[in-house]
Design a protein around this nucleic acid. Structure first.
Length: 681
DNA sequence: TCTATTTTATG
DNA sequence: ATAAAATAG
């Protein structure tokens, strides 16, 4: 063992000193060098958005000051290759081991595996730990030892595991610092000048950093938690935990959340407080969804870019940049949707219910490709999280076995009265509707002219008419579905005739490019009620390139509407928003020509394909995973070696529903079978 | 108390 | 959409 040696503790999305198994192991073993490597280029398309980078910056500063008070500091490095940077850190500090906590997104799985291989080959001990989940994904299986494919079954199993989640660890009392005299920190740049103004507002609403996360947790547990079951779906009040960004960056451990919340539950159960007990169940269910997102990502590493069920493979998604823009700007004509999109832009945060509303509207009413929406969330959310967002969008889109029905359209008007019965939420974020009576606030298009006039609203002018009618959307959805079956039938026939061999991979070979519009829109036309004829594409879309999101972020900062609205999701109604001020998010990029190419997506695909041939055994990982905290020797950790994606959409077969996965979920094909019968029959 | 009707929840 | 739960009669 490395008694007395120096350990590198590699911080990533575990920016805390409390309940941090990697840090604890390092402290136990001797001296510690804490390192953070900023290598955003490694994230490919998923270069973090402006607000997310703002959070990271604050959180790292917070961690550094905590580490300093304990006797060391955080070494920060800029890199385009984390693994080789780690190797340099090891060499320059004379460290003998590398410690880190697990991540489950596909890029981290590959990168961390590589880190283990390369450093181990250099004679470095590499150990990794579970710090992000109640249970490691490979520990949660059904009676046949297979991974679950629905959330309910998964979560039921988690809650009845034969062993409890690990109890949280206390922070170290003191850290002996390794020798970093030859390993200088580099000052990391997370925001440019143009971003600082917008970011300044964020600090009013949010306090990143692990001890603030801890405080937020306590506040929630002692406050809103007990009434969570009653209040959790109110779009407008501070009744949720507001922990999501803290959890994303690992500032607070889910195990600690789980334990503290469970203690409350026992307490309330003893008092006979049924509502309180139920509140805890509902709250930990949302923790469970976060767990499940990692579980899915681990078992099916394509979750963030490909539908898990292939039954919508031939759905003709609308490739309509006008719709997309109207949605982003909150000018769809549906107040609840628009309020949500304005809040997202201004505050970087949305209530879970509102995320569902705007995403559902995006996919079902506008019929835009879900990955565009997911990418926009990625760019704008403070708690942007690849696994959670992929789960959310796939759930909404209907590509999970336990998704919503695909052909069910939710009406934002009715949802408005459900989640925002008094219209307060709409009035806060859509000041142009502030004077409209509650009776009409969620459907202004029905309001009598006199009411509109009294409220100072001119539909189509200072607030849009609905961009698409719900009935029209239903008709369009029907048409799109029948088109989908024709395409599917044609594809089937072609394959049977042998005309098209080994194709059916169209989602990879011809993705729908991300719209250039988001980069260089410069026409300030108001959104028309009758949009131009909509393009349809059969392929699933491709995620925008890292470059595009980066550029867009820069110029978004010039947007004047941001400065005028409040940065606080819980703030008062912004009085100073100029109604006529159109968001000008993309003004600077008018000359920019997008250079998105498919090859990034493909090379990432190939990396993952290669991974399936890696030698490590899953069994080995699972057997030892539970003893990691005891300092047991940790085997090289890697995803399952068997073809872990074949259960879902076949790489080559798409709708070819012979996979065991679909056999286990026959209802997933319900729409298709029923419709095809009514069509061809 | 039982049944019809309305509301709510749905990962 | 649909089923379960709450409420009205």
């Amino acid at each position: 063992m490395s008694g007395g040696g120096c350990s590198i503790v590699w911080f990533r999305r575990d920016l805390r000193v409390e309940d941090n198994p990697a840090l604890a192991a390092g402290v136990r073993a001797g001296a510690v060098v804490a390192v953070f490597v900023w290598a955003p280029e490694e994230e490919g398309h998923y270069y973090p958005g402006r607000v997310s980078r703002w959070w990271l910056k604050q959180s790292l500063a917070h961690l550094d000051s905590s580490l300093r008070s304990l006797g060391t500091s955080l070494v920060t490095k800029r890199s385009t290759d984390s693994v080789s940077t780690l190797l340099e850190v090891v060499k320059s500090t004379g460290a003998t081991q590398l410690l880190f906590n697990h991540l489950y997104d596909p890029l981290s799985l590959v990168r961390d595996h590589r880190a283990k291989e390369i450093l181990t080959a250099q004679g470095i001990t590499v150990r990794s730990f579970n710090a992000d989940l109640l249970y490691e994904p490979w520990d949660v299986n059904d009676a046949q030892g297979r991974p679950f494919t629905t959330f309910d079954t998964f979560w039921e199993r988690c809650l009845s595991m034969p062993f409890d989640p690990e109890a949280p660890l206390l922070p170290p009392k003191r850290i002996v610092s390794g020798d970093v005299s030859r390993c200088p920190s580099v000052t990391l740049v997370f925001e440019d000048e143009s971003e600082k103004g917008s970011n300044a507002l964020l600090a009013r609403a949010w306090s990143p950093g692990w001890s603030n996360a801890d405080r937020a947790l306590t506040t929630f547990i002692n406050g809103p938690l007990i009434e969570y079951s009653m209040n959790r779906r109110k779009a407008d009040s501070a009744t949720t935990s507001f922990l999501s960004p803290h959890l994303h960056f690992g500032e607070v451990s889910v195990r600690k959340v789980f334990h503290l919340v469970r203690i409350k539950q026992v307490l309330w159960a003893n008092e006979g407080n049924k509502a309180g007990e139920e509140s805890v169940n509902l709250f930990i269910k949302s923790i469970g969804l976060r767990e499940y997102s990692r579980y899915l990502s681990f078992n099916h590493p394509y979750t963030h870019e490909r539908p898990l069920l292939g039954h919508l493979k031939f759905f003709p998604w609308a490739v309509d940049e006008g719709y997309f823009k109207a949605w982003r700007q909150g000018r769809t004509g549906y107040p609840l949707v628009d309020a949500g999109m304005r809040e997202l832009w201004a505050a970087g945060w949305l209530h879970d219910r509102i995320r569902v509303v705007v995403a559902s509207f995006f996919v079902k009413v506008l019929q835009l490709p879900w990955r565009w929406g997911m990418k926009y969330f990625w760019d704008t959310l403070l708690d942007a999280d690849l696994e959670s967002d992929a789960l959310g969008w796939q759930y909404i889109t209907g590509t999970l076995p336990d998704s919503r029905e695909f052909d069910r359209i939710d009406n934002p008007q009715f949802e408005g009265y459900k989640f925002d019965p008094n219209g307060e939420y709409v009035r806060r974020w859509l000041p142009e509707l502030a004077r409209l009576p509650t009776e009409w606030i969620h459907h202004p298009w029905n309001a009598p002219e006199s009411v509109l006039q009294a409220a100072g609203i001119e539909l189509g002018s200072n607030y849009p008419l609905p961009i698409v009618g719900i009935d029209a959307a239903k008709v369009r959805l029907e048409e799109a579905l029948s088109e989908m079956w024709q395409q599917e039938a044609a594809s089937r026939a072609a394959i049977e005739n042998g005309t098209e061999e080994g194709l059916g991979d169209s989602s990879e070979s011809a993705p729908i490019a991300f719209p250039e519009d988001i980069l260089m829109e410069e026409n300030h036309e108001p959104v028309r009620n009758n949009p131009p004829a909509t393009n349809r594409r059969y392929e699933d879309q491709m995620v925008p390139s890292m470059t595009s999101s980066f550029l867009r972020i820069e110029d978004e900062e010039t947007s004047s509407d941001v400065r005028n609205s409040t940065g606080d999701g819980r703030a008062e109604v912004p009085r100073d928003v100029n109604v006529n001020q159109e968001p000008r998010r993309d003004a600077l990029n008018q000359g920019f020509v997008q250079t998105v190419r498919n090859n990034t997506a493909l090379s990432q695909f190939n990396i993952l394909r290669g991974l399936t041939n890696v030698e490590d055994s899953t069994a080995e990982s699972s057997s030892s995973s539970r003893r990691e905290r005891d300092g047991g020797i940790v085997p090289v950790w890697s995803p399952p070696t068997s073809s872990y994606s074949e259960q879902f959409v076949g790489d080559d077969s798409g709708i070819g529903a012979t996979s065991s996965y679909l056999q286990r979920h026959p209802q997933s094909h319900q729409i298709i079978n029923w419709r095809r019968l009514s069509q061809t029959g």
